[in-house]
Write a protein that binds this DNA or RNA. Structure first.
Lengths: 251, 251
DNA sequence: CAGTGGTCTAGACCACGTA
DNA sequence: ACGTGGTCTAGACCACTGT
């Protein structure tokens, strides 16, 4: 049972904030001790003494752990680990689905169908609040799982015309967003999602290799930069039943 | 344009924490000034002076406003309102869809189809980790919008047998959860959601008054109490196209 | 350079649950 | 009565942005 030695102390010289170091240590310990039932977790006081810090970084670490579902806290009672560690797959995260599925050991491939500049449809003009002659970069990507189509995503981006990612480049990067950040310094920091079910259109059916009007799950996302500028829109069509979005809501 | 006077000061005698009072005031001001473009928001320093408080409550208020999508903050630059106020409809919130739709001025009714104690199916036993002879309370509810079925939700709860809500009681309460809290002191505090599209089964088609195998959106939710105890499961079937889940993801 | 938000210290008082 | 987490004060130093 003696695994890798767990990092036990914090580094005051590090540029990494204390609360983040504490959080990382606690996450590792929680994962190492996963399954042990009902044992109590350290109190704020114990952590303050253990790490020789004030309450603020301890509280910030515990608060983030609670927000992310690792522990729950009850006033006057204490802090307790949740029984089942959160899985938090992406899907509503922004980009990176392919990498995630691969990490899970799934046979997952991504194919760029096309990269081109297009004139927006009327619908798209309204959504992105642009004029009909403002061109947008359209990236069409098909994600395959075990050789079968899983998701077809089309992303429209309002970016300078000198952003010209190649197909291979995109396939290697696993997400447009990392290229955007690397080459243009543009960071996508928020997505407004709408999720609904629908029947596959003829084109969708063709791309995903299913029958016409078969059920599909559609997520439409408005993409915003760090400065809250609306910079793009994405529509992803997911095969029904095979693809499930998962996530938690706390209150 | 002179609406109700905005509350401008905080009440130190109130039991409501300062940061919540500040947050509420700021939300009202943001909504009142919605649409005005690009104006800067108060800095932490200004708010400290305005409300005569220390930085902590101001920071907590601003942090929550940022988490909830009202403002975004940039280090060394400032805090700025987002252009479009978040709408935040529920749907993934826990309970209260009916009330929300009514607030939006929609003609929305809720009908309890049945309330009964049932033996769990094999599938449900696995999900809730119970024995096949542990009974569960099943509540079947149909939500109608403009006279047409919108959502069919079935909730299974592991609760003491003396919790016997009546149909009328449930319809008035708008959600089982408020009754659970009021009558049993049980607070549902977390939901693990799975969302997918599927074709309507024969039974679903009948209840929702649609054709067999028409697309539907399904959300399955595991319900947890404040102590992280798995206390129930809910499966909700939504009419396709008419019903869209909406929400934001920040990173 | 001054001003911003991010982090941290070292205290304090409180409401609430357990014993 | 005691310990828990929730809130608050009044300071401090830092990295970064804009001028």
């Amino acid at each position: 049972m003696t695994k890798h030695a767990l990092k036990l102390t914090i580094d005051r010289q590090s540029a990494v904030p204390l609360y983040k170091q504490i959080k990382e240590i606690l996450i590792k310990e929680l994962q190492a001790a996963a399954g042990e039932t009902g044992r109590p977790f350290s109190t704020e006081h114990e952590l303050v003494e253990r790490f020789h810090v004030s309450r603020a970084p301890v509280r910030q670490a515990l608060k983030e752990l609670a927000n992310e579902g690792y522990v729950y806290r009850e006033r006057a009672k204490g802090t307790f680990p949740v029984q089942e560690m959160p899985v938090r797959p992406p899907g509503l995260e922004l980009g990176g689905l392919v990498g995630f599925l691969r990490d899970q050991g799934m046979d997952c491939k991504s194919k760029i169908l096309s990269v081109d500049w297009v004139l927006p449809t009327e619908n798209l003009c309204e959504i992105l609040r642009i004029e009909p002659n403002d061109k947008a970069l359209r990236i069409s990507r098909l994600i395959m799982l075990k050789g079968k189509p899983l998701v077809w995503a089309q992303t429209y981006l309002l970016v300078p015309e000198d952003f010209q990612p190649g197909k291979r480049e995109l396939e290697e990067a696993e997400s447009v967003f990392v290229l955007l950040e690397r080459e243009q310094g543009i960071l996508i920091s928020r997505g407004d999602h709408q999720i609904y079910a629908s029947g596959a259109s003829q084109m969708v059916a063709e791309v995903l290799d299913i029958k016409d009007s078969e059920p599909v799950l559609i997520t439409e996302t408005k993409l915003y930069t760090r400065n809250d500028r609306l910079i793009g829109w994405r529509k992803a069509v997911h095969i029904a039943d095979d693809y499930k979005l998962s996530f938690s809501v706390n209150r």
